[in-house]
Write a protein that binds this DNA or RNA. Sequence first.
DNA 1: ATGAAAGCGCTAACAG
DNA 2: CTGTTAGCGCTTTCAT
Lengths: 344, 344
Amino acid sequence: MTQRSQRGRRRGHGRPTLDDVARTAGVSAITVSRALRTPEKVARETREVVASAIAKVGYIPNLVAGNLASIKTRTIAAIVPTLEHSIFTEMLQGMVDVLRDEGFELILGSSGFDIREEESLIKTFLARQAEGIVLTGSFHTDEAQQLLARLDWPVVETWSLLGTPSVGSVGFSNYDAAYEMVKHLAERGYREIAFVSAVTEANDRAAERLRGVRRALADLGLPERAERIRTSEFSLRAGGESMHAIRAACPETDAIFFAADTLAAGAILEAKKCGISVPDEIAIAGFDDLEIATVIDPPMTTVRVPRRDLGRVAARLLIEATEHGFGGGVQRDLGFELVVRGST
Amino acid sequence: MTQRSQRGRRRGHGRPTLDDVARTAGVSAITVSRALRTPEKVARETREVVASAIAKVGYIPNLVAGNLASIKTRTIAAIVPTLEHSIFTEMLQGMVDVLRDEGFELILGSSGFDIREEESLIKTFLARQAEGIVLTGSFHTDEAQQLLARLDWPVVETWSLLGTPSVGSVGFSNYDAAYEMVKHLAERGYREIAFVSAVTEANDRAAERLRGVRRALADLGLPERAERIRTSEFSLRAGGESMHAIRAACPETDAIFFAADTLAAGAILEAKKCGISVPDEIAIAGFDDLEIATVIDPPMTTVRVPRRDLGRVAARLLIEATEHGFGGGVQRDLGFELVVRGST
DNA sequence: ATGAAAGCGCTAACAG
DNA sequence: CTGTTAGCGCTTTCAT
């Protein structure tokens, strides 16, 4: 029927194609294509013939060819800083949940908190024709930013509301959240407050939280001391170590606000181990509201952030953008919630 | 030059193509392609002309077209049960690390511990021409198994060594690990041992661990009581609840082996809260060796598993298989390590 | 070192 | 409801 079958294959993987199905069903290729993608446009009888031909030859559609022909890939890319923090993987789970429902697939990249690597991943995902890209935060390389702007590629930023990505931002105010926490600590009577964050360079979330802490300290007339503003690795152990370091440098410190529950939980565990009473000797606050915040003793005051919804909303925005166009760039403030528990 | 440019575009996304670059560089499309993929086969001078043409028109390669033409996608798919357990996301981080180095991309699926959903994801990833698939465990639907076998598609199974996937298995013996832990508990003098696992249906890892526990109890002449063999949700809270439930049903229980550190940690935290002494009143053992096992008080006896390496080795096996063929199916036992700490 | 021609396997466009 | 034709944008094959 086709040239290919008469001359024998010269390229290709040798697996059955639409043409093979069409030939054994006695219809044209486009009819098979329709039977698969828009069955309602194909006669019931034809559909059945096609279905059995598909089964007979063991046909599996080649979406790469379909994607090329239709200029649509139904693929969304996401770039997260790491797969080792559950806040990001929970967001990804939210994304995957809605993408799957809508027939999209997820290509995943992990940048290691390095915006140069992020840029490289973006380029790869553009070449792979991802129909949308989800980024973490709003801080990227100039080149990445310019590239995406020039191409007007659909982009959603998450965890922050500071950027102006083409499709939109889905996040909350890291500044406000940090500000609120310091305010809460002040209201509880703590005056010698320390702040520990994990990564800060090229991380606008961390930078905003720090800014919020500083502003709140200033507004509330509380002392800010450089020895009490620290960064730390991301681990339970590092949380405990930071606590000790701060208490060594500034023994009068009465509260520590950690920018991640993992750090704060590490501090609470370490405090217990050393017989340091929380919150009497030192108050501890976290950020994220991981499950451990609820079961640790004392339960931890923290900031609840809607990580799974971040992913869900980001995915929905992007899908809608690819299907109905986009413009302007929306801002979805999913908010945060100060959760006060016994550790402060 | 081309038909397309003379008649105006009728399809396509309108972005610059290889032909556009070729035209502005005054060379043929294939030369541009070579300059990009095998620069050493193109004259220095030509390369430079091409490079500036690429910059001038703002060309971005379309890998979908390239993939179709070359019948290679440099894409690997992974299906994990959930993105909410760090053991799986750490494995994924390991995969991503080597895939990226080798110029492969990761398409991600999350099955929700449902092998029917896994089957559906497999079909999608086949259609998307993933060059290899990484699965979790060796228990899949019959249809999925038959499909993969019939197509002889490159598959690696992780976390288990029980299956016979086309490329190989990367895991450890869940049976032996559980057996060893019970043996350890017995050696410590515990005789009334409980076992709590998370999901068990369609989960060969959990099933093997249970089998190992039973066999060990029998071999060591220890009592096995149905009330002490439980399944539980996966959370810290559920770990604590399971501990209480077991102690209520069998007060003589002197040790609980949890099939996940998260459960065990929840039990230790809850025990402390209730003034139950670990390990004196009840010993607690876990599985995974998450960081919390090292910082909790008392530190937790557990089984260390090489999650990151699981991903790395799986990725390498698959890449090698796609590049140099495969046959037989190798077995990579990455082992486990019993880590004895203060909780037993 | 460079090019022409012929696909890769599918779908959009336009009939009928 | 079904078919024909012409690509989608790239790489393979075979020349030169």
